[in-house]
Amino acid sequence: MADAREHVLSGTRGTLTVREWPCERPRYVVLVVHGYGEHAGRYEELAGVLTGHGAAVYGPDHMGHGRSAGERVLIHDFEDVVMDVRAVAELATAAHPGLPVVMVGHSMGGLIAARYAQRYGAELAALVLSGPVIGQWETPRRLLAHAEVHGEIPDVPISPAALSRDPAVGAAYAADPLVWHGPMKRPTVQAFARTLETVAKDGAVRGLPLLWLHGEDDRLVPLPGSRVGVEELSGGAATVRIFPGARHEVFNETDRELVFADLKDFLDTVVGG
C-alpha cells in the first residue's frame, strides 16, 4: 500500500484533516467515516485491504477529532458532519471522476453515513455499516437523564477491552494521543439523540446496496438496537454479517480476515470483481 497523503479542507466549523490512501489503478472510491472519539488513522489496516482490492480510500477526521479543528469531541449538529463528509466526497470524486463511491461508516460513523445516504444516496454505489449507532441506541437517553439529575454528563470512558478480543488493539487505543479518553459532552449527546430520531423518521434508502457488519458481543453498541435501525434504513434488504464472539470493532477483531473477506465479496457484487 502506498503511503497515506494528507489534505486539509475547509469544513463547516474549521479545518478538516483528510487522509488519502491512494491506489495506482482504482476501480472505485471508498469514504471511511470513523467513530466517536477516534480518528481516521486507526483505519490503516482496513485501508490497506481496500487499496489492495482496487479502491482509492479517503477518511476525514471529524470536527473535534484527530487532527481536525474544534473543541475535542464537541458536535452540535451531525448535519454539519454530513456536510464535511460531502466535501471529502467531492475531493475524492474530482480526483477519480466516474468511479463508483462506497461509504463505510463505523459506530458514530455509521450514524453519519446513514444520514448521508438519506440525503445523498443517489451519489453512492453502496453503504457499509459496522457496529452502527442507529435504531434503538439507549446511551444518549441514559446520559441525558443522569445529567438532568446530577447536572453533568457522567465520566464513563470507553473501555479499551470493549473494542476487540485482541489486547493489542485496546492497548494501542489507550496509548493513542489522538483518541479522546474523557467524558462525552452534553451538546454532542443531545446531537446523537436528535440524529437518531431524524434517521428513524426519514426512512429507508431503498435501492442502495447495504452491508451490515456487527460483533455478536458488542457491548458499546448492542446488536439488537442496531438491528432495528438497519432494517428500517434498508427496508429489510440489507446483507447481514454477524460475527460470533466479536466485540465493537470488527475491523480490528481476532477474526478480521473473515470480516475483510465478507466485505470484499460484497464489494465485488457492487463494483465488479
Rank of each mutant, 00 (worst) to 15 (best):
H76M: 03
D80V: 07
V199G: 01
E232R: 13
S234V: 09
A171W: 02
E71K: 13
L31F: 09
L258G: 03
V230A: 05
V133T: 14
G35F: 01
L210A: 09
G229L: 10
H181V: 13
V250D: 05
A2D: 08
A126L: 10
A191P: 11
D84P: 09
R5T: 01
V199H: 01
D218K: 13
H214T: 00
G236Y: 04
V88G: 09
P100V: 11
A246T: 04
S159D: 15
R186I: 03
A237I: 07
Q118T: 03
G64K: 08
Y28G: 14
A145T: 11
H106W: 04
D77W: 00
V29W: 05
A200V: 00
T239M: 03
R219M: 11
Y116I: 07
I134C: 08
P222T: 12
V128P: 05
V73I: 15
M108D: 02
G170M: 03
V29N: 06
A147Y: 03
A126E: 06
G105K: 04
Q118W: 06
V189M: 07
H106A: 08
V221I: 14
S68H: 12
L263R: 03
R186Q: 11
D80C: 11
T51A: 08
V85A: 09
A2M: 12
G35Y: 00
M108T: 15
C23N: 10
L211F: 13
L16N: 07
A193R: 15
M63Q: 15
V88W: 07
I112V: 15
A237S: 10
D155W: 11
V33E: 01
E253L: 14
H150L: 04
P167L: 08
T93R: 15
H7M: 02
Y43C: 06
V104A: 04
S107D: 12
T15V: 02
T188N: 02
T239E: 14
M108S: 02
R194P: 01
H150E: 06
D80P: 10
T93Q: 13
E257K: 15
G207E: 05
D255I: 14
E38V: 12
H65W: 05
D217P: 06
E24R: 14
T195L: 12
V88Q: 12
L220I: 14
I153H: 11
G70A: 02
R186C: 01
R86K: 13
M108L: 15
Q190M: 15
V189G: 13
W212A: 14
A171I: 09
